[in-house]
Design a protein around this nucleic acid. Structure first.
Length: 809
DNA sequence: ATCTATGGCAAGCCGA
DNA sequence: TCGGCTTGCCAT
């Protein structure tokens, strides 16, 4: 038996904290070991999940483990001496396990099991890795991983019976949000919306509010004479559902309810909530705080394509459901019963609907990510992508019996980076951006390396262990452009892990996510999984360069990027050798002329053979307009769809009116089929610009249309070096008593005089600085026209002599 | 107990 | 006035 502290706390750097928690995943290890220390051997089969009755009820059903709570049996203070409570959301059924039982080593969050012949079996019996040709290559470890992923991700999904909760609290001061740690004020309303169709509004009777009567369609409105009864009623519901949804319940709703209940004389036993430092959990069910989930940048950007910008219930539901919060003009505390009930109900309904829309994609996404990351839903939803990858990798370490190194150990063994970043202050050199060939190019094929960085990890056997290994014979296996080398003798765990994920995405989920012959529900599951894998794969390289990541290894990240540069550089050389024109490229993509399909095929074949990389045609453009700016282009597909990348006209912070004009510009350019068509386009663009100018001068745009919307990244006081315009606007708002915090969107217009800006709320349409705005129109258009080889001045009416006498200066 | 990485552009601030 | 620097947003 291993001595305590030898390995299982190795990620915990603070010796005083050894024996307690040091992170979610290590917590898992920690708890297992504690339990083991009370048992005899590691592999002993330990107890059973539940009673025989429970097994009978589950016979033949798939169940997914979504949450495992382990209570520390050694901790002092009278916590449960039982070891583990677990909650399983059963397939279709709503079966709960709150009995204590002893930990079964095989039971992991995310895993899917099937009860067969009275026993718990790992789900999915077929082994895809053995039967599907795409996965037949590769060693046993790789096949095992592929089987495991497919087993997990192909397992059917439970329908979570769930309840959305929202509460409203009285506040004596209109603008102040009640402090949940004090919970001084009354809970005056609560709404409960269930996936089972339940719609309830619980209202506290207040003598000053008049008659207690509210009529809402399809909704049960219940009045309570005392707050205690109301709270007890909420608690009853929280004890009933296996999954409870909130929006910011971690910080507000559940925290408030907990403390309020204590204040009102409830005992802890009566409260179904358990508070953590930064989270709130439920004794019985899973608490999914959608605010935390949607706050996650990866979710925001990759899963929802940046559709919502602010992480507020209003903005998210507006973007995803096209329904916003109920509007109220009066502060909560003074709303009539009906208004209050309606407002509160709408919030709960939106929260529920966020998990219902589009075939419940959010629940699907949550499940897929939980399965991939091996984290319970609750933990997954509260962590960033680095936490998911850490969990996934730690699980793999445990599976293989590997020691999990301390961060300093990795650093000491693997050393530092050896390249210099292009951007000052960065740790190492990243991807290459090819200088664009300015102009309009017809018939352009865009090729890219499928999942470049994960593919490199796979092809080059990269992992923190195999980089800079100790073998003499490996030192010649150099990473181009660096001083690093890679092991030839031992397989890298990360390479296999990320490689297998990459392969199932590219060879299994991606093709199926586009297969129209599949049933809608299945199709959307494939799309979700495909997307979830993309999120994880994209981050899998970056985490090694993030100093807070527990397996931080900058030379590894550097090597991956260096090989990326090598691959694309060699590919460009080869393309030129094949007499294919190269117009542009960025990190993993190349914009190529299409002389003939064979030559592209030759390039693709070459890449596979020489680099071991899968190069593929991503899309074909009818034409591409390039300026001399990198990361800026306009590409028109064969079917007239237009891709716009990096151009100011598309950026979120620019005023609505300009975006609208830009959309029209894009529309005109989408109509261009041949070089000759540009003449017509030019005339239309001219009209467009003129019209916009005149509307601007006549002040026909509203000030909201003219507003810039910029996120304020720090608190207003945090700007010490400069005071950018949006901060100036925020200062003015603050002077008016408005609360502006980091992460808020500041809307401001440019005005004449003063500091040059005003928050849109405080501005008057007459004080707009028209010149500043015309200048903005000019620069926005110029970026596009530049690329098209059109001159803005010339097009919009000569303001300069040179336009009349070209070449005279 | 969180925050995947680097490269690039536009605009504005601010000191030389 | 110029140029370096900060900031936010985007591409990959």
């Amino acid at each position: 038996m291993m001595a305590r502290g030898d390995w299982y706390f190795s990620n915990c750097t603070n010796p005083k904290r050894r024996g307690f928690t040091s992170g979610l995943t290590t917590q898992g290890i920690y708890l297992i070991v504690i339990l083991r220390s009370q048992l005899r051997s590691w592999n002993e089969t330990i107890g059973s999940l539940a009673t025989q009755d429970s097994y009978d009820a589950l016979e033949g059903r798939e169940i997914q483990v979504t949450k495992i709570i382990v209570k520390d049996p050694l901790s002092i203070g009278g916590r449960a001496t039982g070891c583990i409570r677990d909650i399983i959301t059963a397939w279709e059924a709503d079966i709960r396990y709150t009995e204590n039982y002893i930990y079964d080593r095989q039971l992991e969050p995310g895993m899917v099991y099937k009860v067969e012949e009275g026993r718990l079996q790992l789900g999915s019996k077929e082994d895809p890795a053995q039967t599907i040709t795409d996965f037949r290559e590769g060693d046993e470890e790789y096949k095992k991983l592929v089987s495991r992923w497919l087993g997990l991700l192909e397992a059917p999904l439970p329908t979570f019976r769930r309840l959305a909760l929202d509460i409203e609290v009285h506040s004596p001061i209109d603008t102040r949000v009640p402090d949940p740690s004090l919970a001084e004020y009354k809970v005056i309303c609560a709404s409960l919306c269930g996936s089972d169709g339940i719609r309830r509004v619980l209202v506290l009777q207040r003598p000053e509010m008049g008659e207690a009567s509210v009529q809402l369609e399809d909704t049960a409105v219940e009045f309570f004479e005392t707050e205690e009864d109301l709270i007890a009623s909420i608690f009853k519901a929280l004890f009933d559902y296996p999954l409870v949804l909130t929006f910011n319940g971690d910080d507000f709703d559940l925290r408030y309810l907990y403390n309020r209940a204590l204040n009102r004389g409830f005992t802890r036993d009566q409260i179904p909530i358990e508070l953590g430092r930064e989270s709130a959990g439920l004794k019985y069910g899973i608490h999914l705080d959608l605010y935390r989930f949607f706050f996650n940048r990866s979710i925001q950007v990759y899963a929802f394509g940046n559709k919502y910008r602010e992480v507020t219930l209003d903005a998210i539901s507006e973007a995803l459901l096209e329904v916003g919060k109920a509007e109220i003009l009066t502060p909560i505390s003074r709303l009539s019963y009906t208004e209050l009930a309606r407002y509160c109900l709408q919030d709960a309904q939106l929260v529920l609907d966020l998990t219902m829309f589009d075939g419940e994609v959010v629940m699907k996404l949550v499940s897929a990510l939980s399965r991939i990351s091996f984290l319970p839903i609750e933990d997954m939803a509260r962590q960033g992508v680095s936490g998911w990858i850490r969990s996934m990798m730690f699980k793999e370490h445990r599976e293989r019996g590997y020691l999990i190194p301390r961060s300093e150990e990795v650093k000491k063994a693997k050393g530092d980076t050896t390249t210099t970043a292009v951007i000052r202050g960065k740790k190492y050199k990243g991807g290459i951006v090819v200088d664009p060939v300015p102009g309009v190019h017809f018939n352009v094929a865009v090729l890219d390396f499928a999942s470049l960085y994960p593919s490199i990890m796979k092809a080059w056997n990269l992992g923190y262990e195999t980089l800079q290994c100790d073998h003499v014979e490996c030192k010649t296996n150099r990473v181009p452009d660096t001083d690093h080398w890679v092991c030839r003798l031992k397989k890298a765990m990360e390479s296999q892990l990320i490689g297998s994920l990459r392969d199932i995405r590219i060879k299994w989920y991606k093709p199926r996510s586009k297969d129209r012959s599949l049933e809608n529900d299945i199709l959307s599951w494939y799309q979700v999984v495909q997307n979830a894998l993309k999120v994880v794969l994209n981050a899998s390289y970056g985490v090694f360069g993030a100093d807070r990541f527990s397996l931080y290894c900058p030379p590894l990240a550097e090597s991956i990027a260096a090989i990326g540069r090598y691959d694309i550089t060699k590919t460009i050389e080869k393309a030129k050798g094949l007499e294919i024109e190269v117009f542009y490229g960025d990190t993993d993509s190349l914009f190529l002329g299409t002389p003939s399909r064979d030559r592209l095929d030759a390039l693709i074949a070459w890449s596979k053979k020489e680099l071991g990389m899968e190069l593929e045609v991503d899309k074909n453009y009818r034409y591409v307009a390039l300026s001399n700016r990198k990361k800026n282009y306009l590409g028109v597909h064969e079917d007239s769809r237009v891709d716009i990348k990096g151009l100011t006209g598309k950026k979120r912070h620019i005023p609505e009116f300009l975006k609208a004009v830009f959309v029209q510009l894009v529309d005109i350019l989408g109509q261009v089929k041949t070089p000759g068509d540009f003449d017509e386009a030019r005339a239309k663009i001219k009209d467009l610009v003129r019209e916009s100018y005149s509307k601007l001068k006549k002040r026909e745009y509203s000030k909201e249309d003219l507003a810039f919307n910029m996120m304020i990244g720090k608190s207003v006081g945090g700007y010490t070096k400069t005071t950018p315009q949006h901060v100036k606007a925020a200062q003015q708002l603050r002077n008016k008593g408005e609360d502006v915090r980091a992460g808020d969107l500041v809307s401001f217009v440019k005005v004449r005089g003063g500091s040059g800006v005003k928050p849109v709320q405080l501005a008057n349409i007459q004080e707009i600085d028209v010149d500043k705005y015309t200048e903005y129109i000019r620069s926005t258009f110029e970026q596009v026209l530049d690329a098209l080889g059109l001159d803005y001045e010339e097009l919009t009416g000569a303001r300069k002599l040179e336009a009349f006498f070209p070449g005279s200066c």
